[in-house]
């Protein structure tokens, strides 16, 4: 399973994400510069966290205009897996691949901590290795993770099982309905604020991110017959 990790000016979790794919999955992974729009050879794309374009104008807004977004859109249309982490989630929202928008945290401060999440839907390529309602611990680090959408969209997300992760316990940013991660209707595009690549070894304080990556690989193997 060949992964692509797009790099925008200002991305800063690109290396961590690449390392996680190598360390957890031992699969090939390539860093792709944002001006490349051809992603045909890849099986999955993980848009890393960071501050693309310095978060200027709106988080993710300027990255959403990059040539590589064409390739990402194409991949998503073909049913390939697309995961956006933190700034990657913000970019997916700005691109319209996921519904809604991101606002500044309600307390206005940057927040970095290990946050408790509950896995709300395991019927997705990203969560099939978790159990329904499982409580996991994954670090967050953002100043703009206060997810917003209108009432109608929220109902749709709820009804169609597109809310994948919710904050369990404290809501660290004021997001609507405690949302920490959502997917598209087809369930092959996931955006999440928490950083699974920061929870893969015991010494990091949690290993709950591992299952997210292994789920992706398992799904790909099942659907591509490669064992």
């Amino acid at each position: 399973m060949h992964f692509a990790v797009p790099i925008f000016p200002g991305s800063n979790c690109d290396r961590d994400t690449i390392h996680a794919i190598e360390d957890v999955l031992d699969q090939p992974v390539t860093a792709v510069w944002h001006q490349d729009s051809d992603l045909k050879k890849f099986d999955a794309i993980i848009i890393p966290g960071g501050f693309s374009y310095g978060d200027y104008l709106r988080t993710g807004a300027l990255a959403a205009q990059s040539p590589i977004m064409e390739g990402i859109r194409e991949a998503a249309d073909q049913g390939k897996l697309v995961l956006g982490i933190c700034n990657g989630f913000q970019i997916l929202l700005e691109t319209g691949l996921l519904p809604g928008a991101m606002r500044r945290n309600d307390h206005l401060q940057f927040r970095c901590s290990i946050s408790r999440l509950s896995v709300e839907n395991t019927q997705t390529p990203f969560t099939l290795g978790f159990s329904q309602g499982e409580q996991i611990r994954i670090p967050i680090a953002h100043i703009e993770g206060n997810y917003y959408c209108d009432e109608e969209t929220l109902q749709e997300l709820q009804q169609k099982g597109q809310i994948i992760f919710r904050y369990a316990g404290e809501n660290p940013n004021g997001s609507i309905d405690y949302i920490a991660g959502i997917c598209n209707e087809r369930r092959n595009v996931l955006g999440m604020m928490p950083h699974p690549e920061r929870a893969i070894f015991d010494w990091m304080g949690s290993t709950d991110g591992v299952k997210l990556f292994t789920s992706m690989l398992q799904y790909w193997k099942e659907n591509n017959g490669a064992a």
């Binding site: 800063n12 979790c13 290396r15 961590d16 390392h19 996680a20 966290g49 401060q109 940057f110 927040r111 970095c112 901590s113 670090p139 680090a141 950083h195 690549e197 920061r198 893969i200 010494w203 990091m204 304080g205």
Partner: peptide, 16 residues
């Protein structure tokens, strides 16, 4: 203070 700092980026922080 420190929860306003990203103290885990680079995924190498073993003691926070």
């Amino acid at each position: 203070i420190y929860q306003q700092y990203d103290h885990m980026v680079q995924a190498s922080t073993a003691v926070c």
